[in-house]
Simulated assay, not measured.
Amino acid sequence: MQPIAQRVIVLGLDGAGNRIGEANTPNIDRLLGGGFLTYSARTAVPTISGECWGSMFHGVKPELHGLNNSIAEQKKYPTDSPYPSFMKVVKEAYPDRTVASFSSWKPINDGIIEEGVVDCAANARADREHVQSLTELIKGDNDFKLLFVQFDEIDAAGHAFGYGDPLYLEVIAATDALIGDMLQQLDSRGLMEDTLFILLADHGGGGASPRNHGSDHPQDVTIFWGCAGPGVLSGAASEPVRIEDTAAVVAFSLGVEAPAAWTAKVPSGLFEETVR
């Protein structure tokens, strides 16, 4: 299977649900303008970060990957699991290429991604630190293969002010500005054209409670999911996107065979037929 992109960058906006269309997001709009964007993708249930990010990375629902916040905070994900993360799958396929993860929520690097997989990891105290982490990564290795970045302050704003509150939407806008800074860095080094970008939320909020999430209410379960880069069709895929499908899209884009145990799949209509 031939790769269609030289590298993949996954940007995760924790707690953004499907509300980015309500905020001022010129950089996200510009990036996804020629690609694919849905506001009706579905995340895992319960709609908690451990379960949802776990499904995104490991390509299966929570009842199979077994992660929750408590487990991710206390244990490393087993390296012999039949449901490896896409980070592990890509690293095994490209052992000499850099796989990196920058996260403001520590359990992603410490408990959801397997030990020994990530070459470059940064657990940030503030989302803005990811811009500096990217600077350091690019200075040290322009040829990285896979990068995941998790922005946490949107979810914190949802808990503090309410999901959909004007102050919450301001934090989405501030996160978009950070993404713009990152895109500018990538562009200045000629790394945009052959990169596949995936942008998504892990969950929404405000369904059962204005300042919380975790339920199966549509406001908690429905997320945005966008993809742009080589071979991506603009418009809508012909089937619903699930958060676990992210793993299959990453693997396919880099020409890596997906593990048989994954339930993740590449949504039909996402890519041009010539690259499938």
Rank of each mutant, 00 (worst) to 15 (best):
M1V: 15
M1I: 12
Q6N: 13
V8F: 00
A16N: 06
G17R: 11
G17T: 07
G17A: 07
A23E: 04
N24E: 15
G33Y: 02
G34D: 13
L37F: 07
A41R: 08
P46M: 05
I48S: 01
G50Q: 01
E51M: 07
C52M: 03
H58M: 07
K61N: 05
L64D: 12
L67P: 02
S70Q: 12
S70N: 10
I71Y: 08
Y77H: 01
P78T: 10
P84R: 08
P84L: 02
S85L: 02
M87K: 08
K88R: 15
V89S: 08
A93Y: 09
D96K: 08
W105Y: 09
W105T: 11
K106P: 09
N109D: 12
D110N: 14
I112N: 00
I113F: 01
E114P: 04
E114A: 07
V131R: 14
V131C: 12
V131G: 15
V131P: 12
S133Q: 15
L134I: 14
T135K: 12
T135N: 13
E136N: 13
G140R: 05
D141S: 03
D141G: 04
N142T: 15
D143P: 03
L146V: 11
F151V: 14
F151Y: 14
H159D: 02
A160N: 08
A160S: 11
F161G: 06
G164F: 02
D165P: 01
L167T: 13
I172L: 08
I172F: 02
A177L: 11
I179Q: 09
D181E: 15
M182E: 11
Q184L: 12
R189P: 02
M192H: 11
D194E: 13
D194R: 11
T195I: 13
T195Q: 10
L196G: 10
I198R: 11
L199I: 15
L199F: 05
G207M: 04
R211G: 15
R211F: 00
H213S: 05
H213Y: 01
G214T: 00
G214A: 01
S215E: 09
D216N: 10
V221P: 02
I223E: 12
F224I: 15
A228W: 07
S234P: 09
G235A: 08
A236I: 10
S238C: 10
E239I: 13
E239C: 08
V250R: 12
G255M: 03
A258Y: 01
A261M: 10
P267K: 06
